[in-house]
Nucleic acid binder design. Structure first.
Length: 263
DNA sequence: TTACAGGTCTTGT
DNA sequence: ACAAGACCTGTA
């Protein structure tokens, strides 16, 4: 059992902030699958209890949950430079962290997300895990399948409900298999180069590429603009949103704005 | 029944 | 460069 501060860490807000699709919450307990492991998180006053060994915490969860990033710095930026709307959004979403999820799962997830709704996205990803994933260490939940553990045609399975996105998923799976080391090589790129590289793949446009940069590679300067963000920008920042105030971390700011907008 | 959902691709100017 | 229009499909 590990105990961490809840000051900049809210499992529920992270779960609902749209960056992950396989977290679940029941009776206040949030369950998290990642890298073949399963974590339960229980908020307890100003602390959050994690059902993890010290070893797994240091090996996986500390990094995955982004616990070493300085979110106090973000708060100072918001206090110093934010407009009233952003300050309001921040006060709701300050418990959000940008997870360091498996890039492959993020690529697949956000390919599926295009022109789609959250419920169906989650269903598809859950089905993919059930059909092709392995058991997590709890022997109950499934992990997200490795690209080398499936065939590209796997995505054609109609019960996955992937619709017209099937060719995109088939392509990316084929590409990863034919270019082993591609994803590892992406980890060494700067944001701009990573973004350009992702755009080369079929079905990955500006929005999906930025989501992958932000949620799969922790490029905190990536600023995905979807329908919600576009509408909020038009509504609250008609003369333009000044990214310069939050240079290098605008993507985190985007999450607060997005979360506030969908709530 | 029709419209919508964390967009992207293709085609026509 | 830029603006339509098409696109799977579950849900309301």
């Amino acid at each position: 059992m590990i105990e961490i501060s809840a000051q900049y860490f809210s499992p529920k807000d992270i779960m609902k902030s749209g960056q992950c699709f396989r977290w679940h919450e029941e009776n206040g307990i949030v369950t998290v699958p990642a890298f073949g492991k399963m974590l339960k998180m229980v908020p307890d006053g100003d602390r959050v209890l994690l059902t993890s060994s010290e070893e797994d915490f240091d090996l996986i969860w500390r990094d995955y949950l982004d616990l070493d990033f300085d979110y106090e710095k973000i708060e100072k930026l918001v206090d110093g430079y934010a407009d009233s709307h952003l300050k309001e959004a921040y006060s709701l979403g300050k418990g959000i962290r940008i997870l360091k999820q498996d890039p492959w799962e993020v690529i697949v997830s956000f390919l599926i997300s295009q022109n789609n709704n959250i419920a169906r996205i989650s269903d598809s990803i859950e089905r993919i895990s059930e059909k092709a994933g392995k058991f997590c260490d709890d022997g109950v939940h499934f992990s997200f399948p490795d690209p080398f553990d499936i065939t590209p045609s796997f995505f054609e399975d109609r019960s996955l409900g992937l619709g017209y996105r099937v060719p995109y998923l088939t392509h990316i799976c084929e590409y990863v298999q034919n270019n082993p080391g591609w994803i590892e090589s992406l980890k060494r790129l700067e944001y701009e180069d990573l973004y350009e590289e992702l755009l080369k793949r079929k079905g990955i446009g500006p929005k999906v590429a930025n989501c992958i940069c932000l949620f799969g590679f922790h490029k905190t300067e990536a600023f995905p603009i979807d329908t919600h963000v576009k509408s909020l920008l038009d509504k609250y920042y008609p003369s333009g949103f000044d990214h310069e105030r939050f240079k290098g971390v605008a993507g985190i700011i985007q999450q607060y704005l997005f979360y506030y907008e969908i709530r």
